[in-house]
């Protein structure tokens, strides 16, 4: 569970988040919004990367700001996965374990993403999709109650994509809080139970997928979001 209250973030004179109140309960929530809507800033605030001026964030009931240890509850997969080039895949995963002071049996994870043959290869040798898989493992292997996945499927081949989605559903059924973003809304279809729509630093819609479709009268998420963007875009500007 992640709770955000009255979050305000300004970069100089530019206000990116204008008092965001939102709750991410257990289940899969899709965080959507056009470019520069504040999605990334909101995620980064939850992760402690961005320091907001006002408001509070609680992860599993504990305040995030000033408490790095709270991030033991959070697994994060960034949009651009990058690890030190001269270290092998195995070393990288050991490093990430060191950061958490947790030991995990790597074998099942490595075979889940089919990277057995790359275990002793330096990260610099791996291709884009393979790197993405390493990022996936680094985010999922600690069995954290909260998962934040920023454009996780970009660059994955269809088989890995399917496996990844299966895993997400599995984790959801185990009661995890999963926050997903994607530019490809059809990717989120069938995965997200809830939708949070952010526009120009404000929450425009927050509710279940069904409520979104009802609210907009559209048949799927893609059209519903497009409709919200159009409607609010003209209002805001």
């Amino acid at each position: 569970m992640v709770e955000v209250k009255g979050l305000v973030k300004r970069y100089g004179s530019l206000t990116v988040l204008r008092g965001v109140d939102v709750t991410f309960p257990p289940g899969v929530t899709a965080l959507v919004g056009p470019n520069a809507s504040g999605k990334t800033t909101l995620l980064k605030s939850i992760l402690g990367l961005v320091i907001p001026q006002e408001g509070s964030i609680h992860v599993m009931g504990e305040p995030v700001t000033g408490h790095p240890e709270i991030r033991r509850h959070v697994g994060y997969m960034p949009q651009m996965v990058q690890f030190p080039e001269n270290l092998t895949l195995k070393e990288i995963l050991e490093w990430v374990q060191d950061l958490r002071n947790v030991r995990v049996d790597l074998e099942p994870w490595v075979s889940w993403v089919g990277l057995e043959e790359f275990v002793d290869k330096p990260f610099g040798y791996l291709s884009g999709g393979t790197r993405q898989k390493v990022g996936m493992v680094a985010a999922l292997m600690f069995d954290t109650p909260v998962l934040i996945l920023d454009e996780p499927t970009a660059g994955l081949d269809p088989l890995s994509n399917t496996r990844f989605k299966e895993k997400i559903r599995e984790e959801r059924d185990r009661g995890k809080t999963i926050i997903l973003t994607s530019h490809i809304l059809s990717e989120l279809e069938g995965l997200a139970d809830r939708v949070v729509f952010l526009l120009e630093g404000k929450i425009i819609f927050e509710g279940s997928r069904e409520a979104l479709l009802d609210h907009t009268g559209k048949p799927d998420m893609e059209q519903a979001i497009a409709y919200l963007m159009q409607e609010n875009g003209s209002e805001v500007r």
Partner: peptide, 17 residues
């Protein structure tokens, strides 16, 4: 610069800045 994204990932782990 080359490791910027990884440094950011490190900062999302339960470690202090």
């Amino acid at each position: 610069h080359n490791n910027r994204n990884f440094i950011v990932l490190t900062l999302t782990q339960p470690v202090s800045r």
